[in-house]
């Protein structure tokens, strides 16, 4: 599996305006989109390091990065996906959204399979979050 949670057997589709392959590095540019099952990763540029078998070892998404798996959505300017660790580390103006709840931080580490998220504030700043306890829903 790649960016989808669990041991998804879904095929991974990568589309973009251009793609350049050299040795074990693949660089996609322009409207880059990686889709696997419900998970989707969008960015302006994507650099993938391939293993000798042609699988993805790491993926670095750069520029207007957006990751969603149908439940959470994470946006930022840069994201590094590590297949071995099964994590996505997102930096630069990071926002995580789950339904109506929103959190922002300097950097987040997201474990794809478990959905666990670690927020790290930017130097000199604090983590901010907006939670709904559910009462507001009844009143409105």
């Amino acid at each position: 599996q790649l960016i989808a949670a669990g041991d998804s057997k879904e095929p991974i589709d990568i589309t973009g305006d251009t793609a350049e392959f050299q040795d074990n590095l693949a660089v996609w540019t322009g409207n880059v989109r990686v889709v696997q099952g419900p998970a989707i990763l969008i960015s302006e540029r994507l650099e993938a390091v391939l293993t000798d078998e042609g699988d993805f070892e790491t993926i670095t998404a750069i520029g207007s990065v957006r990751y969603s798996n149908g439940e959470e959505a994470i946006t930022g300017e840069r994201a590094v996906f590590n297949n071995a660790a099964r994590t996505i580390v997102m930096t630069d103006n990071v926002i995580v959204t789950q339904g109506k709840q929103v959190m922002s931080a300097g950097k987040i580490t997201y474990w794809i399979d478990s959905g666990k998220v670690l927020f790290t504030p930017e130097a000199g700043k604090r983590i901010r979050g907006l939670f709904f306890t559910g009462k507001d829903d009844e009143q409105s």
Partner: peptide, 15 residues
């Protein structure tokens, strides 16, 4: 050893 693809580039990989 370089290949450049342009225009609706689509790659499909099966895990």
């Amino acid at each position: 050893g370089r290949v450049v693809l342009e225009g609706n580039v689509h790659m499909r990989i099966y895990p």
